[in-house]
Write a protein that binds this DNA or RNA. Structure first.
Lengths: 161, 161
DNA sequence: TCTAGCTTGATGACATGTCAACCAAACTGC
DNA sequence: GCAGTTTGGTTGACATGTCATCAAGCTAGA
C-alpha cells in the first residue's frame, strides 16, 4: 500500500457525484415525504416493507434483516411507531422470545396515502431523469455491488476473484 | 394524481438496488474507516475537505456549504473534533462574526494516514467493480440529478422543462 | 433430561443530527 | 450615527442511531 492508486478524474467524478446525489436526493425525498405525509423515510420504509407482506406482519428480526437495520434500532423505532398507532407489537406464537410487528389500519392508511406522492418524487428527482441505458446501468451496477458486499460474510479477505 | 405511475420492473430494480447499495456501501466503508483509521465518515469528510484547500482552513459556513451540512451540525461536529485535537477554531480576521476551521498537524496526519486505505476500500467495493461504461454512466447520471436538485432553489414548482 | 451455548428482543447509556431560539457583528437606509 | 434587518455562528432541547448488556427461550449434545 506504499503506492496507493488514487482515483483518476473519471473515477473521482463518479464517486463525488454519487455522494452528492446521495445526500441531496435523501434530503429532498425526506423533506417532501415529511411535508406531504408526515412520515420520515425510516417510517415509510418500515410501513412499506410491512405492507408488501401478505399478512402485513413480520417477525422483528425478519423485518430488521430486510431493511438492513440492527435489531436494536428497529426495536426502538417500532416503539416510537407503536406510540403513534402505526404498528403494533405482538408476541410470536411459535417462538416465545419473538415479537411480531403488525401494520395497523392507520399504518396501512398512512402508507397508502404516502406512496403515490413518494413514488412521484422518486420519479421526478431520479428515475425520470435517467435515460433507459442509465437506468439499466444503475440497476446492474448496484446489484453487482450489493452482491459483492453481501457475498463476503465479513472482514476483508484478500480478493481472490 | 389519481393514477400514480408506479415503477415498472426495470425502474424498481434500479431504485431498490440503489438504496441497498447505498446502505451496504456506507456500512462497510464506515466500518473499515473506523477500524483502520479511527475516523467516522463525517470526520473523514471534514478532514478531507479541509486538506484539499490551499491553506488547510475554511470558514465554517463555507465548509458547511461544501459538505451540504447545516451550520449547526458542523458547529457541533467541529467542537467534538476540536476536543480530539484534529482541528482548531479561530476567529475570522475579516469578519468579526465568523470562525475559521483549521486542520491541525494531527488532523493532517490523520487524513493522510486514512486516505490510502479509504480510497482502496472505495475501489474494492465500488469503483473497481464497474465497467468503464458504468463508471461513466454513474458520473453523468449523478451529476444530472445533482444539477436538477440544486437548480431549483426550493419547493416543488410544477416541472416546466 | 440437563445443561451449555446460541438466538431473540428489550433496554439504558451514550454519540450524533435536527430544530428553533438566541446572540453578536455587520450591513442598510435614513 | 443609529434603528432595523440580515448574516454567521453557538447553544440547548429533543429525536434518532449505536453499542453493550441482559433476560428469556430455544437447541443440541452428553
Amino acid at each position: 500500500m506504499d503506492e496507493p492508486r488514487w482515483l483518476d478524474e473519471q473515477e473521482d467524478r463518479a464517486w463525488r457525484g454519487y455522494r452528492r446525489m446521495r445526500r441531496l436526493l435523501d434530503l429532498e425525498l425526506a423533506r417532501e415525504l415529511m411535508q406531504d405525509a408526515g412520515l420520515s423515510e425510516p417510517d415509510y420504509d418500515v410501513l412499506s416493507d410491512l405492507s408488501e407482506t401478505p399478512e402485513q406482519r413480520l417477525r422483528l428480526s425478519e423485518l430488521a434483516d430486510r431493511m438492513l437495520w440492527s435489531r436494536s434500532r428497529l426495536s426502538h423505532h417500532i416503539s416510537r411507531m407503536q406510540q403513534r398507532g402505526l404498528v403494533t407489537r405482538e408476541e410470536c406464537a411459535t417462538d416465545g422470545r419473538g415479537s411480531v410487528v403488525t401494520l395497523t389500519p392507520a399504518g396501512r392508511q398512512a402508507v397508502e396515502a404516502a406512496a403515490p406522492g413518494h413514488v412521484a418524487a422518486v420519479r421526478r428527482h431520479l428515475i425520470d431523469l435517467l435515460t433507459p441505458a442509465e437506468l439499466a446501468a444503475l440497476g446492474t451496477l448496484s446489484h453487482r455491488v450489493v452482491d459483492h458486499l453481501t457475498g463476503r460474510p465479513t472482514g476483508r479477505p484478500e480478493a481472490k476473484d
